[in-house]
């Protein structure tokens, strides 16, 4: 009888071990199991979020967020013990990223998505990889630095953005007489600034630098003032999968601790291939340091 129990126990352990081998390391993570089954990691990328996630000259998605995601893909390979995992790129937009992550079409969204608490009901985020906030861009020589300088002038914002809310709140708080005009998107906003429809355009500072780098005369515009909002960017992952999320966080912590994060940052921003020039700020360096959790 004793022998029977022992045999059963051994075979049970062997069976568990065997199943474990089939889904090596996938554990209780539905995302990892899915990746193991289909043999590729599905990365959602943006097409024009320069320099985070965009289509490069070789028609492949490149950028700061994409590089970070490749580090996660390497960790997934190690975790599943499968070096043959491939990457499948799926283009997403601001409107399709949610349905695509909700129905499991993408495992990682590597773009320029702001992490906020309301959105966390729908998706999960990895560590903060970038910090931006609302600033204002104007023509050089306009004498505009802070939002207070806009009294009696016209300020443009992209309709329905956090920037719009932040700028309107700042104007109301300081009791300023600023006329706010909402534009449909950044290209319309930049056009409005260029054609003197507006005196200044408010948006995330990194986007403003990006718009300047694309304009005909990069020295004609300036980004100025203090931050009027706080927008941390992070890589987005499916919700309810803490195992997968933890794997991603380990990768990020390791990158931040080893200083590799700073190298990747410098590669894209200081100055990046797209002429954008934003040296690593003390604020972001601090964020990297505090997120470098020990093992």
């Amino acid at each position: 009888m004793k022998k029977f129990i022992l045999t059963t126990a051994i075979s049970a352990i062997a069976a568990i071990g065997f199943t474990g081998a089939a889904f090596a390391g996938a554990g209780d993570s539905p995302t990892l199991q899915k990746i193991a089954e289909r043999g590729y990691v599905s990365i959602g990328h943006r097409e024009t979020s320069v320099p985070f996630s965009y289509i490069g000259d070789a028609e492949e998605p490149i950028g700061y967020s994409i590089d970070l995601c490749h580090n996660i893909v390497d960790a997934i390979k190690a975790e599943l013990g499968n070096d043959n995992l491939t990457v499948k790129y799926v283009p997403v937009t601001g409107q399709t990223r949610i349905p695509l992550i909700a129905n499991g079409s993408i495992d990682l969204e590597c773009g320029s998505t702001t992490n906020n608490l309301t959105r966390q009901k729908q998706v999960s985020y990895l560590s903060t990889t970038f910090i931006t906030g609302t600033k204002i861009a104007s023509k050089v020589g306009s004498g505009i630095t802070e939002i207070e300088d806009l009294a009696g002038k016209v300020l443009g914002v992209s309709a329905g953005t956090t920037n719009e809310k932040a700028l309107k709140a700042a104007i109301a708080a300081n009791n300023l007489d600023v006329k706010v005009v909402t534009l449909k998107d950044h290209s319309q906003g930049w056009l409005a600034l260029d054609t003197d429809r507006i005196d200044a355009y408010g948006s995330d500072d990194v986007l403003l630098y990006g718009l300047i780098s694309k304009s005909a005369d990069t020295s004609a515009y300036q980004v100025t003032g203090r931050f009027l909002s706080f927008d941390p960017y992070a890589i987005m992952v499916p919700r309810n999968d803490s195992t997968f999320e933890r794997l991603g966080r380990i990768v990020m912590s390791d990158l931040m601790r080893s200083g590799e994060m700073e190298n990747i940052y410098n590669k894209w921003f200081s100055p990046g291939p797209t002429k954008i020039n934003m040296p690593l700020s003390n604020r972001l360096r601090g964020a990297f340091d505090t997120q470098a959790y020990p093992h």
């Binding site: 601001g94 409107q95 949610i98 309301t118 009901k121 729908q122 309709a159 329905g160 953005t161 319309q188």
Partner: peptide, 23 residues
């Protein structure tokens, strides 16, 4: 009107989707 930046009903729902991800 949303194409020239007026936040009417359709634009407002896009905005709610954008903020909350509850499209």
């Amino acid at each position: 009107a949303l194409t020239i930046g007026v936040i009417e009903l359709t634009s407002m729902t896009r905005q709610i989707e954008e903020y909350t991800f509850q499209g």
